[in-house]
């Protein structure tokens, strides 16, 4: 166990270097000229402007040189400067991180609670109508493109029913509190503004619902499989024989053990969450890292794309590692080699 963890941790720096190198390679193996996105078309004929831009963004150096400069800067936390916002990419990302975290955490909470309930019901009523309905609902959830369900939900809940507000994180007239955590719901509570809190919460609901639906699909499938596994074991029959009520058997006896393997859902759903977050943020004008990535890709802002890709890759790597280790701790039957 310890040996496994040490080995995984030792491979981490190497993988991180691999991520950085691959991201660098991709963004510099371009056919498109990065200059085209910095210098305006009319200025492209002006050699002075082009040379100045090249020197300004370090594009006049050789590729290996650029690579080593990038690595050196990276070690001091510098991800380069965005062509588009003209701000350091690291600063851009930090500013936008709370918005993404707020959305992702809300979606995780929503998705995993509904997913667990659906999964338990499906397992309890295996092969009955409830089971089929729950599985179909979950499957539709994970098969629907979020950029489409986002639009549909917006149309239904915001336009037709008028229950929830449109895109954005706050009402256009509201001013977000500054210098606090950046989680608008928490900030509003911190300054004690209940009106602002409801506004932020209402804006959060739809995107969290859309993103949570995909999470629900994955979670309910995992919980169902794991519950079926547990429900067929002797101690459940024993509990029933002792006269324990059905709810008690399901929740106290079965679900507790069934949840052990699903504790690692965070790891399994991380890739889906990132994909979902990128598209959901684009739909809901949610000023997080996802919409930043989309804007960067659309305007061919290479430093920003590279920054997002590297940070996303590192986060993905760490979550996977944490998941594997948590899995090993949670279920001692798993042998690591």
């Amino acid at each position: 166990m310890t040996r496994y963890i040490v080995r995984r941790l030792l491979s981490l720096p190497l993988l991180l270097l691999g991520i950085v190198s691959l991201a660098f390679l991709i963004s510099h193996a371009t056919q498109g000229d990065p200059l085209a996105s910095i210098v305006s078309e009319r200025q492209m004929d002006n050699p002075e402007v082009v040379a100045a831009a090249k020197a300004r963004w370090g594009l006049d150096k050789s590729l290996p040189e650029q690579y080593f400069i990038y690595i050196r800067n990276l070690l001091s936390g510098d991800l380069g400067t965005s062509f588009r916002t003209k701000q350091p990419v690291a600063q851009d990302l930090l500013e936008r991180l709370p918005a993404t975290l707020e959305l992702v955490i809300a979606a995780m909470l929503l998705g995993s609670t509904t997913g667990i309930v659906l999964g338990v019901l499906a397992a309890r009523f295996r092969d009955r109508v409830i089971d089929h309905a729950a599985r179909l609902w979950a499957l539709i959830g994970s098969s629907t493109p979020v950029f489409w369900s986002g639009l549909i939900f917006l149309y239904i809940f915001s336009v037709v029913l008028g229950w929830l507000p449109g895109p954005g994180r706050l009402d256009a007239r509201a001013t977000p509190p500054e210098g606090l955590t950046g989680f608008l719901t928490i900030d509003a509570l911190l300054i004690g503004d209940m009106g602002l809190f409801w506004d932020a919460l209402h804006h959060l609901m739809l995107p969290a619902l859309v993103l949570g639906w995909t999470v629900m699909g994955i979670v309910s499938r995992l919980v169902r499989a794991s519950m079926l596994d547990v429900l067929s074991q002797d101690y459940i029959t024993a509990a029933r024989a002792r006269g324990a009520g059905e709810v008690r058997v399901l929740l106290n006896h079965a679900l507790r053990n069934a949840l052990v393997p699903t504790l690692t859902i965070i790891g399994f759903t991380f890739a889906y969450l990132i994909t979902g977050a990128v598209l959901t943020e684009a739909i809901f004008s949610w000023t997080g890292i996802g919409s930043y990535a989309v804007d960067a890709a659309r305007s061919l802002d290479y430093p920003a794309i590279m920054g997002v890709t590297i940070v996303g890759g590192a986060a993905f790597l760490l979550t996977n590692l944490a998941t594997d280790i948590a899995y090993a701790f949670a279920d001692p039957r798993i042998r690591l080699s």
Partner: peptide
Amino acid sequence: LSFPPILL
């Protein structure tokens, strides 16, 4: 495989 698919 360390990259989230959509970002890559």
